[in-house]
Design a protein around this nucleic acid. Structure first.
Lengths: 118, 118
DNA sequence: GACGTATTCAACCATCCAGTTGCATTAGAC
DNA sequence: GTCTAATGCAACTGGATGGTTGAATACGTC
């Protein structure tokens, strides 16, 4: 009777998604994939790093559930899985009211602090 | 000398925020701090790890702009800065439509696109 | 079956990270 | 000034991470 298989966002996946998004290269890959499926070669091209490094980044994204790979001849097209982004966004959403309410007070506070901070 | 101080979400901060949130301990700290200010001791208590480890986690959160520390006698109360969460949420929001529009159709769409694209 | 292309795998390296322990610092209480 | 409590800082450690290069695999073409 394991219940872990449900829609519950488990902590590990959340960590994996946030961790994957913590790298600017990987965020760029996500941005690119949002426009549509692409092969590893296509994805790697705009980067100055080696092809294999990009392949590794894609593996990280795949492990986090952010990317899904199929096969097409020699190519291995990558596709974005937005559901994983929804997980992360959902977690953040729990705190949405904190930044949506009383922004003025927050800014005021931060400004004051800034003055006395450094 | 740099003018990056504006509302623009710069890549480095985004990386820092996502990276900070990638750790379950730090997410727990954020959750706790969402309920209100707390001292390092109070924050560390529920964890099994050493006090100093929690202190380090708080430093990471502070560096990412997620936490703000003041002084109160020997204590250094921590307070959540939800604005940093808003940064991360804002980035994810750019892709919101990808997961909000019907999932099935998205897959279909992407498949078709690939077919006609190259 | 040999060849070229697309991609992964493996080994290696430098660096970062999460945790530990021990010591230093700060500030209030006596 | 001394004691104690709350916290930070420094040094160390094992393991993850981001990058490299070189070899191996998988697949379509000849």
């Amino acid at each position: 009777m394991v219940e872990e298989q449900t829609l519950v966002v488990d902590d590990r996946q959340l960590s994996a998604v946030f961790s994957a998004l913590a790298d600017p290269t990987r965020r760029a890959l996500v941005r690119r994939l949002a426009a549509g499926e692409a092969s590893v070669g296509e994805l790697a091209e705009p980067f100055s790093m080696s092809f294999q490094a990009v392949s590794k980044h894609l593996q990280v994204l795949e492990q986090a559930g952010l990317v899904d790979r199929s096969r097409k001849a020699q190519q291995r097209p990558c596709r974005l899985r937005p559901q994983a982004l929804a997980y992360a966004s959902g977690w953040l959403g729990d705190y949405r009211q904190l930044w949506e309410t009383s922004f003025d007070r927050l800014e005021e506070h931060l400004t004051n602090q800034k003055g006395s901070q450094q």
